[in-house]
């Protein structure tokens, strides 16, 4: 468990840093993938709901305080914790097809955006408007789904490698 936690931490921090220094700098058309979110889902699929929720909270909190962030601290921690928990629920499906995985990532992205937007709207965050939410939903879900077939097998493979007993 501890090796997996260390692995998850390293992967998550790398993902967060790559997000702000590389992915977001690319200024992809219409939006961007959320690499850290996809990683949280990937680890939660292996580790279960408790693991997913705790990891999601930790990664979200780091994303909240990592410099260019400007929203209320705790918003992403909340959103990612929910996502990690939900993804962990489908953990022990034996024959998890690529389609299921991709659907899970898409669903998780949508949940994250909605949770973030709802709590943000309650706080009077000017970033949150109906059109912004619709835009973010479409862009984040599509980009994350595109990223999922690459990230999820990588993470599963790394976890299996770290814990051969599995």
């Amino acid at each position: 468990m501890s090796r997996r936690t260390a692995l998850a931490g390293a992967v998550a921090i790398t993902a967060l840093l790559l997000q702000v220094t590389v992915i977001d700098r690319l200024h992809l058309p219409a939006g961007r993938p959320d690499l850290a979110l996809v990683c949280v889902v990937a680890f939660a699929l292996v580790g279960g709901p408790t693991y997913g929720a705790v990891l999601g909270f930790g990664v979200g909190f780091l994303a909240d305080i990592m410099p260019p962030a400007d929203h209320t601290i705790g918003l992403l921690a909340l959103a990612y914790a929910v996502v990690g928990y939900l993804a962990g629920l489908v953990e022990d499906v034996e024959e998890r097809s690529v389609v299921t995985t991709v659907l899970m990532v898409g669903l998780a992205s949508a949940v994250a955006v909605v949770v973030f937007a709802m709590i943000g709207a309650l706080l009077g965050n000017a970033h949150i408007s109906l059109s912004a939410v619709a835009h973010s939903l479409a862009a984040t879900v599509i980009y994350d789904v595109v990223l999922a077939p690459f990230v999820v097998p990588l993470v599963s493979g790394a976890v299996r490698h770290a814990e051969p007993a599995g």
Binding site: P49, F61, I73, G74, L78, I119
Partner: peptide, 24 residues
């Protein structure tokens, strides 16, 4: 698979997150 423990952990995390949000 779901368990009472997982739900408890999630509830605690959400509570912590809300506390963080309020403080910030």
């Amino acid at each position: 698979r779901d368990s009472r423990r997982a739900r408890l952990v999630l509830a605690l995390l959400l509570l912590t997150a809300f506390t963080l949000i309020t403080l910030d």
